[in-house]
């Protein structure tokens, strides 16, 4: 069979177009199969420098303190709730470590207290995390809250983080907690 030049070029173009459509579809399919990646901070590397509160493009920051209750000692003198060297355990501003009053303390039974983070007030400064890590079990941990994070291509906090604690994680590992052996899915 004889093909003229016009027909030959037409066939080439058809093949090229077909191949590119298949290629693009393949790439998209593989990407969707893999799932998205999200920014998250590794609490084992975090040094609670306070930059999460100020560097995030979202105001207040998308980084929040999360309380891992399984690790909490429910202490009366909580290092994450009270300032160091506190003289009496009252809720006066002079005794509070959290600058925005984002931790709620509730009496459980003597001598135990429950501590809850009020997300709307938490600015992700990490002061309570530092305090809890220094004097307690380290149950207060900073995490990127994915309902607030806009998942920037280049995370502004990751860029400023002095400890390189930020990384992209797949959906299955969206939240990462340190010292949490059961590896529960949140």
């Amino acid at each position: 069979m004889k093909k003229d030049r016009r027909e030959f070029i037409n066939t080439c173009f058809r093949f090229a177009a077909g191949a590119s459509i298949v290629g693009v579809a393949g790439v998209l399919a593989s990407k969707s199969a893999k799932g998205d990646y999200f920014w998250q901070l590794d609490p084992t590397k975090c040094t609670q420098c306070g930059r999460c509160a100020t560097s995030c493009v979202v105001t207040p920051s998308a980084v929040k303190c999360i309380h891992v209750y399984d690790m909490c000692g429910y202490c009366d003198l909580c290092g994450g709730y009270f300032r160091p060297n506190v003289k009496n355990l009252s809720t006066g501003a002079e005794n509070m470590l959290c600058p925005t009053g984002a931790i709620k303390r509730t009496y459980v039974e003597d001598p135990y207290f429950k501590y809850e983070i009020i997300d709307d007030l938490c600015i992700g400064c990490g002061k309570c995390v530092k305090g809890c890590g220094a004097f307690g079990n380290g149950s207060l941990q900073l995490q990127v809250s994915h309902d607030l994070c806009v998942n920037c291509n280049e995370c502004a906090i990751a860029r400023d983080c002095p400890a390189d604690a930020f990384k992209r994680v797949p959906l299955e590992e969206a939240y990462q907690f340190a010292g949490f052996k059961t590896n529960k899915k949140i």
Binding site: G50, A53, K87, G92, A93, E94
Partner: peptide, 29 residues
């Protein structure tokens, strides 16, 4: 920046030195 309210921190430090200064306590609050 509510995280680094230096003035409040310095007042708290002063209060630690004089724990019975109620006026200072009220001022901090």
């Amino acid at each position: 920046d509510p995280v680094n309210t230096e003035l409040i921190n310095s007042l708290v430090q002063r209060l630690e030195e004089n724990p019975n200064d109620n006026q200072l306590r009220e001022q901090i609050r």
